[in-house]
């Protein structure tokens, strides 16, 4: 992608700050579109960069920072969904009214988006999590198939097939509406 920081010493304040300046809005956007909650997007984005810094600070090397950041974000989102499910099932025991995993996050957090984007977010929210993830990585984050394959640890062929299937699912959702 044009303008990506390159040749940067990640283990220094200036280098890591440059990486943060460039990638934090992209990672935030990706997380927000996956979890639909502003506060969670803030927390998880912070955690992505803290974890990345801790990794570097422990003396390990990162070959491709972009893939590393998206992979860390993905792991955190998966963990977040798992913990959310646990909480949700506990709440279900207490009250039948509070069993919804996804409430109306946009209203709750007053995120400013156009009506068109809001309606689209609600549609992709109905996709399976893995389908939503792959479509966002490919068409919103504009990652190459090879990059997605590195992030998700799957072959390029499997990614291409998954994208095709996810597009089909989105198409049938659109038709049903």
């Amino acid at each position: 992608m044009k303008g990506e920081p390159e040749n940067i010493k990640l283990d220094q304040v200036s280098g890591f700050s440059l990486v943060y300046d460039y990638y934090s809005p992209l990672i935030w956007k990706h997380i927000f579109l996956r979890v639909s909650l502003k506060e969670e997007a803030n927390d998880l984005t912070s955690e992505v960069f803290l974890k990345t810094w801790d990794y570097l600070n422990s003396g390990k090397k990162i070959k491709k920072i972009k893939s590393f950041l998206y992979r860390t974000a993905d792991n955190l989102i998966v963990d977040w969904y798992r913990s959310k499910k646990r909480v949700s099932s506990l709440e279900q025991d207490v009250s039948e009214d509070e069993n919804s995993l996804v409430q109306d996050p946009l209203l709750e957090d007053k995120i400013i988006v156009s009506e068109e984007v809001e309606s689209l977010m609600k549609k992709i929210d109905r996709l399976q999590e893995k389908e939503r993830k792959i479509l966002l990585l490919r068409f919103v984050d504009e990652l190459e198939i090879e990059e997605i394959s590195e992030i998700l640890g799957k072959s390029k062929g499997a990614i291409t097939v998954a994208i095709h299937r996810a597009l089909k699912s989105l198409d049938s959702l659109m038709k049903n509406d």
Partner: peptide, 18 residues
């Protein structure tokens, strides 16, 4: 799908966390 790029990040938060 590409229209989802219009979502604006919470820059105030990102700046304070920096």
């Amino acid at each position: 799908l590409r229209r989802l790029k219009q979502v604006q990040p919470d820059f105030a938060y990102l700046k304070s966390f920096k």
